[in-house]
C-alpha cells in the first residue's frame, strides 16, 4: 500500500506548436480532496486525460499506487473527463449496465448510485432526453458505480444550476468522508476552496504551486483596521516597519503584516495616540492568492 494514490513525474505534452504541459510533477495523498486549479487552457484536462489513458504524453510517467497496470487502475477508479459520454438512445440503467460490464463490477449498485444522484425517477428515460445537469449527474453515478477508492472529476459542476452545484459539492464532501480520494479539476476557485484539502495550480502547462489549501489560506496575515481619522491612521501606519500593502478599503484600511503580530501593531499605534476602533484578521482567500500567483507567473 502506498501513501499516494498516484504519482506523476515530469509530464510533458505538446499539441503541434502549443506546449500544453511542461514537466509537471505532483502526487496525490491518499484520502485527500485534491484540486487541480487553473484557468481554461492551463492543462488540467490534458493532465487528467493522460492519467486516464486517453491522451499520450510526450514525456514523463505516472503510476496509480496500488495497481499493476493503468487499465486495471482505471477499472477501479471512477472518472469523468470533460463531457458525460453515453449512448443517447439508451436509458440510464442500460447505460450504466455497459459501464458495469466494462468495470466488471456487476449491476447490483445501479439503483443505489442512481438514487444518490437523484435520477432514480428518470431511470427509464433515454439519455438524449436529459438536461445537461442530469447528464452530468449520470456521469457522476457512473463514476461511483464500481465503489471506487479514487474518484476523478473534471469540472464536475459544469452545466449545473446553483442548486445542482451545491448538491455536487455536498456529494463530494460526503464521498471524501468515506475515505475516498477525490481528484477534481476546476477553474472555479470557490469550488476548490470549499471542498479541497490539497491544491495544484497550473498555468499554461506549468506547475505554479502544490500544497495544502489550509497552508494557502493561513499564509496571509491580512488585517482591516478602523479609526475615526483615516488619514492620520494611514500616515501613522506608513511609519511602522513591517506594515505592507497598505490600501484603503472604504471606511477601513487594509494591510499585511510581516515580522510582527497584531499585538505589536496595536501597541505601537497606541504609543502614537491612536486607539483603534476596529482590528480584524482576515484569511487570505484562495482567489487573491491565485491571482497573485498567476500574475507573477505571467511576468
Amino acid at each position: 500500500m502506498s501513501e499516494h494514490v498516484i504519482r506523476v513525474d515530469g509530464l510533458s505534452k505538446k499539441y503541434k506548436s502549443i506546449q500544453a504541459l511542461n514537466q509537471v510533477s505532483f502526487s496525490v495523498p491518499k484520502g485527500s480532496v485534491y484540486g487541480i486549479l487553473g484557468p481554461n487552457g492551463s492543462g488540467k484536462t490534458t493532465t487528467l486525460g493522460i492519467l486516464l489513458g486517453v491522451i499520450k504524453q510526450d514525456q514523463g510517467a505516472y503510476s496509480w499506487g496500488d495497481y499493476d497496470s493503468p487499465h486495471q487502475a482505471r477499472q477501479n477508479i471512477g472518472a469523468i473527463l470533460e463531457t458525460p459520454n453515453f449512448y443517447p438512445y439508451l436509458n440510464a440503467v442500460d447505460n450504466l449496465k455497459i459501464t458495469a460490464s466494462i468495470k466488471g463490477c456487476g449491476n447490483t449498485r445501479i439503483p443505489e448510485v442512481l438514487k444518490q444522484v437523484n435520477l432514480w425517477q428518470r431511470k427509464k428515460s433515454a439519455f438524449k432526453t436529459y438536461s445537461l445537469g442530469m447528464k452530468q449527474r449520470l456521469a457522476i453515478a457512473a463514476a461511483l458505480l464500481a465503489n471506487p477508492k479514487v474518484l476523478v472529476l473534471d469540472e464536475p459542476t459544469n452545466g449545473l444550476d446553483p442548486r445542482g452545484i451545491a448538491e455536487v459539492r455536498e456529494l463530494i464532501l460526503r464521498i471524501a468522508q468515506d475515505g475516498i480520494t477525490v481528484i477534481i479539476a476546476s477553474h472555479m476557485l470557490d469550488e476548490i476552496e470549499k471542498v479541497c484539502t490539497d491544491v495544484l495550480v497550473l498555468q499554461k502547462g506549468e506547475k505554479l504551486f502544490e500544497g495544502q489549501v489550509s497552508e494557502v489560506l493561513n499564509q496571509g496575515s491580512q488585517f482591516k483596521l478602523g479609526y475615526h481619522d483615516l488619514d492620520l491612521l494611514e500616515k501613522s501606519l506608513s511609519e511602522i516597519n513591517g506594515v505592507l500593502n497598505l490600501t484603503r478599503a472604504g471606511t477601513r484600511i487594509q494591510i499585511h503584516l510581516e515580522g510582527m503580530g497584531p499585538e505589536d501593531l496595536n501597541k505601537q499605534l497606541a504609543e502614537k495616540g491612536i486607539w483603534l476602533s476596529y482590528l480584524v484578521q482576515e484569511n487570505q482567500s484562495l482567489e487573491s492568492y491565485f491571482l497573485q500567483l498567476t500574475k507573477s507567473g505571467q511576468s
Binding site: L52, G53, V54, Q72, R74, Q75, N85, F86, Y87, K103
Partner: peptide, 11 residues
C-alpha cells in the same frame, strides 16, 4: 458519442 473514449476511461 465519445463512448469509445469513455470505455478506455472506464477501464
Amino acid at each position: 458519442y465519445k463512448t469509445y473514449r469513455q470505455h478506455i476511461i472506464d477501464g
